[in-house]
Write a protein that binds this DNA or RNA. Structure first.
Lengths: 214, 214
DNA sequence: AACCTGTTGTGAAAGGTTTCACAACCAGAC
DNA sequence: GTCTGGTTGTGAAACCTTTCACAACAGGTT
């Protein structure tokens, strides 16, 4: 059973995502069970880490046998909260925003884009995959009823904070941010950054300082 | 001066990116110097962490005064290796790939997309912002001369590994991966993942397990 | 020149994460 | 029923990162 008072680290949660994808693949390959050793090998992790990560949430394996693939997959989906659909709003239909609307992985994983906002008059009213783009001025109005649970921010850095203030005020607790900046939000709002510039800078550092890599 | 034998943690490198952006902003606001205290406050970090991070690379500040904004900005650019341009190739001009070609932040930061590849006959030969799309079959051939230093992979997960094997074989040491999967590469190749599904899953976990957040 | 305020740079302490190592256990063989 | 090989679950150890705390120092003031 879940250890209710334990805090779970960011790395552990990320690895659950990795296990989830690996287990889906194993299911396709008709595996019935998988050992921590084999799972770790596939994902370049250590067996102990796999077991420790899972043990935070319960004991799902059988000694001598390993973990039942389908069952563990479902259990992880449940832990991650992806055994259901989430209603998502997208703010900003520029280059990245438009790409996200068509991005099939989102839908596949149960993240449904329900509303789209932009401030460009030429875009407002236009149709993106069946969703009509609303005026960004209506953001607060449209988010405050609680239908939308996650908001994706894909606007220029210069306006991102203003928009996020509105989003927070409307009661949203989860934001995926593509603007290359640190958003300021209250502690009870979770922001994840998808910052390509930052990852490229990491690669640049890595190429420039071969000996200093972690 | 640089401490040559110290390994630098991933978190420290990511924070250097954060400091870099903050310092650019401070420069725009005409700050001449900034204390670790003030810089930390702006980015929701601790002063000690700012000082410790910087101290790995040298001592750039003045006791009693703080750090010189412009100078520190330049020094961090140098450490991150972004005081120059990098030649980038893009593989896959689907939704995400096309968005990246138009994404201005890349160019602004000195990451220049020089070559584009795809396997779709309708796309090969077409022009994206002045770059003609090449057949993905020519990937190895076109990368092996060393002009390209960083490759961005924006292809479906099913073909990502095959393509990456080619990229690695051609001698590329830095890859930015948008495919939702863990790529297998030798230890001397650095892969950064831009995995939106994973970040959404984190948000999903966060909304589902309020009490377990780190 | 002595003093005061502010801030860095950094060893040491605290806190967190990963790895180790092994008892506990399962399933199959004999 | 007992043994054997394999694997989990987990405290403890090792390792890594962050925070603390303070000496060292710059610059201004009296």
């Amino acid at each position: 059973m879940a250890r209710s008072l334990r805090r779970i680290s960011e790395s552990t949660i990320h690895r659950l995502s990795i296990y989830y994808r690996a287990l889906n693949q194993l299911e396709r390959e008709n595996y019935e069970t998988i050992s921590s050793k084999e799972l770790a090998k596939r994902e370049k992790l250590t067996p102990a880490q796999v077991r420790k990560d899972l043990s935070f949430f319960g004991s799902f394996g059988t000694r001598g046998l390993g973990y039942p693939v389908g069952e563990l997959r479902n259990k992880i989906a449940e832990i991650l909260g992806i055994n259901r659909t989430w209603n998502v709003a997208l703010v900003g239909v520029g280059n990245i925003g438009s790409a996200l609307v068509s991005y099939k992985e989102f839908q596949k994983q149960g993240f449904k884009i329900k509303k789209i906002f932009d401030n460009d008059q030429r875009k407002i009213g236009s149709n993106h995959k069946g969703i009509v783009v609303s005026d960004i001025k209506k953001l607060f109005e449209e988010l405050k009823d609680g239908e939308i649970e996650i908001v994706v921010v894909a606007v220029p850095a210069t306006v991102a904070q203003i928009i996020v203030d509105d989003i927070v005020r409307a009661g949203i607790k989860a934001i995926l941010n593509f603007a290359p900046m640190n958003l300021k939000v209250p502690d009870d709002v979770e922001v994840r950054n998808e910052n390509m510039a930052m990852e490229l800078e990491y690669l640049s550092f890595s190429l420039s300082n071969d000996s200093l890599r972690p």
